[in-house]
């Protein structure tokens, strides 16, 4: 199992968190930690996601990136 840390920025839509969690589970990544907040000034949400999987992280990054409300997904490689 590899550990990865993702930093995701998204438009502040109520459903965005649900979409990210659904994609993460479906694509075979376990969530070991999460932190989410919204900047009420800019209306941009930031989600920090700690995930584990045997699969390469690019698979998840590409799929999260396809979600319409996502602005950016960054992988912090220092996490593993």
């Amino acid at each position: 199992m590899n550990n990865y840390q993702l930093m995701i920025t998204a438009d502040d839509k109520q459903v965005v968190l649900e979409r990210i969690l659904q994609v993460t589970r479906y694509r075979g990544f376990l969530i070991s930690g999460m932190n989410a907040k919204v900047n009420t000034g800019t209306n941009i949400g930031t989600i920090e996601l700690l995930v584990r999987s045997e699969r390469p992280i690019e698979l998840l990054v590409d799929q999260i990136n396809k979600l319409i409300d996502i602005k950016e997904v960054k992988v912090d490689n220092s996490a593993s």
Partner: peptide
């Protein structure tokens, strides 16, 4: 056209 299909 879909980045997620490359290397999937």
């Amino acid at each position: 056209i879909d980045t997620a299909e490359i290397n999937k």
